[in-house]
Design a protein around this nucleic acid. Structure first.
Lengths: 228, 228
DNA sequence: CAAATATTGTGAAAATTATCACAGCATCCA
DNA sequence: TGGATGCTGTGATAATTTTCACAATATTTG
């Protein structure tokens, strides 16, 4: 009922996924889609989709479904992606350079407009039309270029330092690729992209499935066993 | 109570985080840590940590805490990261090359042992001591090299195709960097690293906070308003 | 030894999140 | 026109996840 109470982060995550799916659906030429069909495509229940949307208003037509383009516009507006955002990138290593070269960011409206590093060999070099700046210039540039989002692709030892620099010059949204537990002040949103955790989850499931398998087989020979 | 029922994925994610924190704590020379102190460091409650661990057994000492190294070993074993995993990487573009060059993977025990692409200009070239192979050789190589994890860094249009190739040659764990809703068969674990969604969540929170701000300010001048 | 302190593991309670199920309305079709 | 059909939005219900609170037990101190 469009109340804008505390919306769960999971809802926002799903909105983003709905939105992308709607983009594909639109490209296919479909003009209307039901929550049921949308759900089937992306693996969520129709009820989940309707509940998520109901946090923000009523966008569907009873008996019909949702107008693909309209819903897309609405979700884009909710997510705030109907505008451009300037992004600062800290760290011009392998990962940083890949992020900079990645065309997705710009397509989605997130422009990396400044890159920082502390390596004198890199500072002053041009990358994808952006000159790498000394990290000490971060605060000044963030203000000058109206940068609202900071991306961190530095070694874990210095990631907290970068966070502090970002937050102290007014950045309230941080995307962190460094594998480290960093903390942010109240009012700052941090999203971690943690490859170690992702891989370790996969490892757990492989190990677990394998165990389940050998357990089943093991039971034939061995009735009870203390795990080692 | 070490029951190995269905363990929530969130629990596994946190275990990975606990484990990394324990690594840092160990480096600091601390031998014992309480759930309370561990929680303070990484931003989880002590109860959460104890509950999570209790899914797998009893590892603490009443009145004392947890032996850092012991708990680390236990969690590593639970996660299955006390061994090496071979990883295949599909896609040798910017992101793929960054992943390949990233030293973290190997450190954590995840070795990228094969890279595939469909670009003839790339096939046969050596990258970080690995020769890029034609995608058609995927199945053969996966079997020969005992590859258990597949990483996908290809354009979204072909990502589902790669998933199908991976799963049909027995891979049951996939890390997907492509921005696309892909589906996997039963029994295959998929983890998505979705930069678009991450950025859009940040965008939402920036937009939302800004709205809350201006709402508060707006109330002074304007009592009721239809949001635009 | 006894009292004070520290901390685990866990059942119970609370909070959060997802699913169900259906009233209500629009559209289609005869 | 009227009955059948399709689909939304949502209150109620179910499931899951997190937090609380404390018995149990080890350690420290005097």
């Amino acid at each position: 009922m469009s109340d804008k109470r505390k919306i769960a982060e999971a809802v926002i995550t799903r909105l983003s996924i709905y939105n992308r799916a709607l983009g594909e659906i639109g490209k296919e030429g479909l003009e209307i889609i039901s929550s049921d069909e949308l759900g089937n495509r992306i693996g969520y229940s129709a009820a989940q989709i309707r509940k998520d949307l109901s946090c923000f208003g009523e966008f569907g037509e009873v008996g019909k479904g949702y107008f693909v383009q309209d819903l897309r516009d609405v979700i884009s507006h909710i997510l705030g992606v109907d505008r451009k955002w300037n992004v600062a990138l800290a760290g011009a290593g392998h990962l940083g350079s890949a992020l900079l070269a990645y065309p997705g960011f710009k397509q989605w409206g997130f422009n990396i407009v400044a890159v920082f590093d502390n390596d004198l060999a890199k500072i002053g070099k041009k990358w994808e039309s952006i000159v790498i700046q000394d990290i000490s210039e971060l605060a000044k540039t963030v203000k000058e270029q109206d940068i609202r989002i900071g991306a961190i692709a530095v070694p874990p030892q210095v990631s907290q330092e970068i966070v502090d620099m970002f937050t102290s010059c007014g950045i309230r949204a941080i995307l962190n690729f460094a594998t480290a537990s960093i903390t942010v002040p109240e009012g700052v949103k941090l999203r971690n992209v943690d490859l170690a955790t992702e891989l370790e989850c996969l490892s757990y499931f492989l190990t677990n499935e394998a165990e389940v398998r050998s357990e089943v087989l093991g039971k034939i020979k061995n009735s009870s066993g203390e795990g080692g």
